[in-house]
Simulated scan of single mutants.
Amino acid sequence: MRELVVLGTASQVPTRTRNHNGYLLLWDGEGLLFDPGEGTQRQMILAGVSASQVTRICLTHVHGDHCYGLPGVLSRMALDGAEHRVELHYPASGDGVVRALVSLATGVLDLHLRPHGSAGEVAPGLSVQPLRHRVECYGYRLVEPDGRTMLPERLAAAGVFGPEVGRLQREGRLGQVRVEEVSVVRPGQKFAFVMDTAPCAGAEELADGADLLVAECTFADEESELAAAYLHLTAGQAGQLAARAGARRLLLTHFSSRYPDLDPLRRQALERAGGAEVLAAVDLERIPLRRRRRTAQGRPAR
């Protein structure tokens, strides 16, 4: 199962209907918790997910609305008896803040701190890129390795059946038959998480070809000067990011409390999003990661 559970969508100031940030990506038995803001533990209960499902925590930066929920989540995991290893990724310059927050948690947990200070892979398939914000900030990108889709008609023509198909997949060759001859590449899924930032190269690298791009959308286009002053994205800039990156779906979030109605923001993003589907995130909703469809020629379709 692969889906994103939205735990909170507010920026600095929460509202009656929007909690501070929090996003749980369920990915093949792993649970990646991004930017747990204040109240995340309660939001997880309301969303019907367990703190014990968290295997990795990823902080983009140490502003409070992106990390103040950390002690509660860690304490709840310990209380629930989570015994698995938990990795905590965060910008190295925020080490003092992160250690202070971790020290507030109670109970015993197999927690490992993993600060990073530059772009690159921080775990298998998980990489970071620097963003442009008022403090050191990194976005995250999770990529599944490419696989192969076996083509039944080609397998039959080559005389490969039953258990031999699995052997061919594992070994890459069966007699004179090569796996490339009876299959096509299946692109791995890509997930991108771009939080507080002004437009920058790092955001574009993260978003490149993403099946699901989660991007901050703090301000409407009319507030572009304010967005530039505080180094945030407007709705239109988020849409443009998706278009340039060729993203399939754009999920807008991190909304200023000045916008009770999110549809105008969604429409502004949609106008500049190219072929990307655009959604405005809602607290407690679940966003599935869609498997790629294929054309008859084996090429991935949007």
Results as ranks from 00 to 15, higher is better:
E87C: 02
P199W: 05
A47E: 09
T149E: 04
E87G: 00
R16M: 10
R167I: 11
G175I: 10
E277S: 12
Q129H: 12
E225Q: 13
D146G: 04
R18L: 05
F255N: 07
V128P: 00
H63P: 00
Q169M: 13
R178T: 08
R291E: 15
N21R: 15
T60R: 02
H61P: 00
G64A: 07
P260F: 10
G29H: 03
D211K: 07
Q240Y: 06
E225S: 13
V5P: 06
S118T: 07
E225R: 14
G39H: 05
I57R: 01
A281P: 05
G96V: 13
V108T: 14
L109F: 01
R267C: 03
R132N: 06
Y259M: 08
Q41V: 13
E164R: 08
G139I: 05
V54D: 08
R178W: 14
H84C: 01
G239Y: 02
C217W: 06
A198H: 11
S118D: 09
A207S: 11
V5A: 08
D211I: 10
Q53A: 13
T149V: 09
G72W: 08
A210S: 09
L279G: 00
A198V: 06
G275Y: 06
S93Q: 11
G236L: 09
L155G: 08
A229Q: 15
L33Y: 03
V135W: 05
G166E: 10
Q43T: 02
L284N: 15
D146C: 03
L104D: 01
G175R: 06
L262W: 01
G147Q: 10
E222G: 03
V97A: 09
C217I: 08
E223Y: 10
R134P: 00
S93H: 10
E164S: 07
V278S: 02
M150V: 10
G69Q: 06
R267W: 02
A158D: 07
Q237L: 11
L88Y: 04
R302D: 15
Q43G: 09
A227Q: 02
P288A: 13
L111M: 09
L111F: 02
G274H: 01
D35P: 02
L262V: 05
D95N: 07
S256Y: 03
M44E: 06
A229W: 14
G166Q: 12
A227F: 01
Y68A: 09
V49Q: 04
R272Q: 15
D28Q: 13
M150K: 01
G139E: 08
P288D: 10
L25D: 06
A78K: 02
L250Q: 04
E216H: 14
L24I: 03
M77L: 11
L126N: 08
T295E: 04
R42L: 11
Q189P: 00
D283A: 14
P91I: 01
A276H: 01
R99W: 02
L284Q: 15
G125C: 10
L155M: 12
